[in-house]
Design a protein around this nucleic acid. Structure first.
Lengths: 239, 239
DNA sequence: CCAAAAGTGTTGGGTGTACACCCATGG
DNA sequence: CCATGGGTGTACACCCAACACTTTTGG
């Protein structure tokens, strides 16, 4: 109590109690499959079924934002893998709200998270029961989005794309063992341009992020692919 | 109103109204002068005068977080220059609160901002009236800090250091015209290691971020320094 | 034997790095 | 003339980008 009084003295006009925005976490769950970078989207409102949004939820009282995001992710995908905070938005217009003087005219504070998801998990969990009507949508063919959410997705995409080049974040986009061509495809799809096979192979081994396993995979009428794995599942960076 | 009901249906247990944390913005204002990277710190509590914190404030009701941060920065430095959001923290312990069952046991949601400040502005505004007892403290000799705030400063330092290498963010750390040795010193102090003069010069011109002015500065018993300026004050990145 | 994907080396150009000396000035 | 900081060029190592063919398999 005494402390709070002191804080108010040091601070400009507004007091703590006055600012009570609606706090939400939103999750940009991204996965590469079927040759596309895709995000989990859910319908924004039943009134306008053509508009979609990132999955969101309200944090519980005793919960940190990170935990709330993890819980939301688990609800969507069954289990939460790696995820990280992206950005906190307050400029998202409160479109669709009833009237200007409504009691619901509270500011929305939306803390967004980036969650790279593993393709195999994804395809086996296409709609996943309990997750509502979410669906994996290609970033190249986004539907009309809730205000600000296309921007969040762009931000998530850029962050993921950049992190590919200086971290092992791709470990969260692939199953435990994979062919190098699969890893390369992940890089190509997210970066949006093709890579030279030999240079990619040289580079990825030089990072020390991946190593060969003794296994190989045989399918189709061609030479079997050696399988590789990430040395560490923890997020590592080069430099 | 109807919309909110629908949102509740899509969302897990907690409802919007239950989560009303204390929302604050904190500003990591960083500047290079007197050979050090320094941050603006204010006393954390009068009870324990040895503990310091980042300057914080409560947003006003009708204000976005960005505006609140800008207002806080203006209060501290006279005018807000460039600043960007860093990260949103909720894990900051509510140490120092009276009792466990107190009414003030609300969760704190702290949105931190990074604000590079210009050295000349800084030295002319040493304490600045109206900014309280804030002072520019070297990051190399941090006092005891409020919980989580040393971490925020480390985060701000790393972000600034990395951005030096792929943006012109240093434009916000120097006056309009400057000698190249001053710019180099900024890079050296923030990165914490010396740079080769010729290589730095080659690199900075290769970026296209700076250009020579017709002016030079004469002082001391040595050849006058050519003055340079940033081509653009907007944040640009290479690649 | 054919189609399909896996795997493998070399080279030229450019970029980063290390390094030492002359220049202009004020005192 | 000397102390001080400003400004300049070169040589070498390394890294990156470009590029084509052989291998292994199933059908």
């Amino acid at each position: 109590m005494e402390l709070l009084v002191e804080e108010r003295e040091r601070v400009t006009a507004p007091t703590a109690a006055t600012y009570t925005p609606l706090v939400m976490v939103s999750v940009a769950a991204l996965a590469v499959f079927n040759g596309d970078l895709r995000a989990l989207l859910s319908p924004h409102s039943a009134l306008d079924p053509g508009v979609f949004a990132l999955p969101r939820s309200y944090p519980a009282l005793d919960e940190s934002l990170d935990l709330a995001a993890g819980r939301e992710l688990a609800r969507l995908c069954g289990a939460a893998g790696y995820y990280e905070q992206l950005y906190t938005w307050t400029e998202i217009a409160s479109e669709g709200r009833p009237g200007p003087g409504s009691a619901e005219e509270r500011r929305v504070l939306e803390v967004s998270y980036l969650a790279p998801c593993i393709a195999t998990t994804v395809s086996s969990v296409e709609p996943r029961s309990g997750a509502g009507s979410v669906s994996w949508t290609s970033l190249l063919q986004l539907p009309r989005m809730a205000p600000g959410h296309a921007e969040i997705l762009g931000y998530a995409h850029r962050r993921l794309s950049r992190k590919l080049s200086y971290t092992n974040i791709a470990v969260n986009l692939l199953p435990a063992e994979f062919a190098l061509s699969e890893l390369q495809a992940v890089y190509e799809v997210i970066r949006g341009r093709p890579l030279d096979k030999r240079n990619f192979r040289k580079w990825i081994f030089a990072t020390g992020f991946v190593e060969a396993t003794p296994h190989e995979r045989r399918f189709g009428a061609h030479r079997p692919a050696r399988l590789y794995r990430f040395v560490s599942r923890d997020l590592l960076r080069i430099d």
